Amino acid sequence: MTVQTSEERPLAASSDNFDDFLPEALRFTAPTELVDIGANLTHESFSRDLEAVLQRANAANVTTLILTGTDLEHAEQAAALCRRFPGLYATAGLHPHDASHWSSSLETAMRDLHRQPEVVAVGECGLDFNRNFSSPTDQERAFEAQLGLAVESGLPLFLHERDAGRRMLEILRSWRDDISHAVVHCFTGERDTLHGYLDLDLHIGLTGWLCDERRGYHLREFLNDIPLNRLMVETDCPYLLPRNLPAKLKGRRNEPALLPWIVQEIAHWRDTDQAEVAHATAETARRFFRLEET
């Protein structure tokens, strides 16, 4: 990703110090180009140094970013960023936390977004029974509506699931013949749920959760169950800062430049080469989001 504005001019001169945010010990360049399939770059924490964030990603060989659209406002912001910077693409959907806000007007607005060339997936959508910020009934209603939009648009799905694997699988089974590809982003579930998703020919997104010995250890035990052609990697930044970093980072903000540390962790637990994981996950992401066609 050569980071330039839509006017094809270099970034501002202030980017001379673009790497000051990362200590030397955290500047890790991936052996081959990476695709970060889940970056929340519309989050307010990136508002002051976005260009530097993109340059650090470029320096780390994270060349393509899929910006997550979790509601109408952030999906529109993500699409606008994609028009400013090459190498960026967006998703557009409504997160289950906000499912109670689903309406016919929102559905129309999302349908319009899905027609934009920079929008490459429907979502983030799904079910979250962990906190139930929206009721399960509202979550299922919004999820089914967005499954319908995915069928209508032909776009793949960017899915969220937390503590709702059984119900998610039931719903997806009834839609599987109609939807195209789907990825369960930031997978944190158990082996049985994983195998249910794989049996439906879904893809799996892994984050820095894997690097957290307190709550992600179980993922390491069945990491090899995920075929490389179904696996993608993501930071979910600014969240889920990897805990395997060899130096402290000022603040707790995660960013795309740290994706290589997640790839390293995956390679370690799969007992394979980092370059193999990097290349395979990037190729899988490009096929999944049809980036060769854009």
Rank of each mutant, 00 (worst) to 15 (best):
E124D: 08
T32V: 03
P31I: 10
I266P: 00
E124Q: 11
E124R: 07
S104Q: 15
L26N: 01
V151T: 08
F18P: 08
R270T: 11
T235S: 10
L26A: 03
M232S: 06
P31F: 05
A90C: 06
L65H: 02
S103N: 04
A121E: 04
D49T: 06
T137C: 11
L22E: 04
E24P: 05
D36S: 08
R270G: 05
D163E: 13
I226H: 00
E265L: 02
H181V: 11
R214Y: 13
D163I: 02
T188V: 11
E213C: 13
L240E: 07
L219M: 07
F18K: 01
C186N: 05
N17V: 12
M232T: 05
A247H: 11
D112S: 15
L157M: 12
D36E: 12
V233K: 05
V35S: 07
T207E: 02
D16M: 14
G126H: 04
R84N: 14
R191S: 10
E190C: 07
R252V: 13
P227N: 00
T284I: 09
C82L: 10
R191A: 07
R243Q: 15
N61Y: 06
F158P: 00
E213Q: 15
G148P: 02
G216I: 03
N254W: 06
D273Q: 13
L228S: 01
D138I: 05
P256F: 04
L94Q: 00
A25M: 03
P246F: 13
D20M: 12
D98L: 14
N224D: 14
T70K: 00
W269C: 01
L219Q: 03
N224L: 10
L94R: 00
P96V: 02
A90P: 03
G93T: 01
R215W: 07
E190G: 09
D201T: 07
E161L: 03
R191G: 05
D19W: 11
E7M: 14
A275I: 14
G189Q: 05
N224E: 12
I171S: 05
G69Q: 07
F222N: 02
F133P: 04
T5E: 01
R270Y: 05
F28T: 07
Q146W: 00
R84M: 12
H185R: 12
H114W: 12
F158L: 03
T284D: 03
E276W: 09
T188A: 09
D36L: 08
F46M: 15
G93H: 01
E118A: 13
V151F: 09
A285N: 02
E234K: 04
E8I: 13
R27L: 07
S174N: 14
I171P: 03
Q264L: 11
I171C: 01
A25Y: 06
H43Q: 14
L259H: 03
R287N: 14
L127I: 11
S47R: 15
S100F: 11
Y217H: 15
R286E: 12
V53L: 08
L157F: 06
W102C: 01
R162W: 06
T91E: 02
T108A: 15
R230K: 12
H279N: 11
E44G: 09
S180E: 14
R286F: 06
F133N: 08
N61I: 11
L11Q: 13
E276D: 14
D177M: 10
R220T: 13
S47T: 13
H279Q: 15
L228M: 11
C211F: 02
V184Q: 06
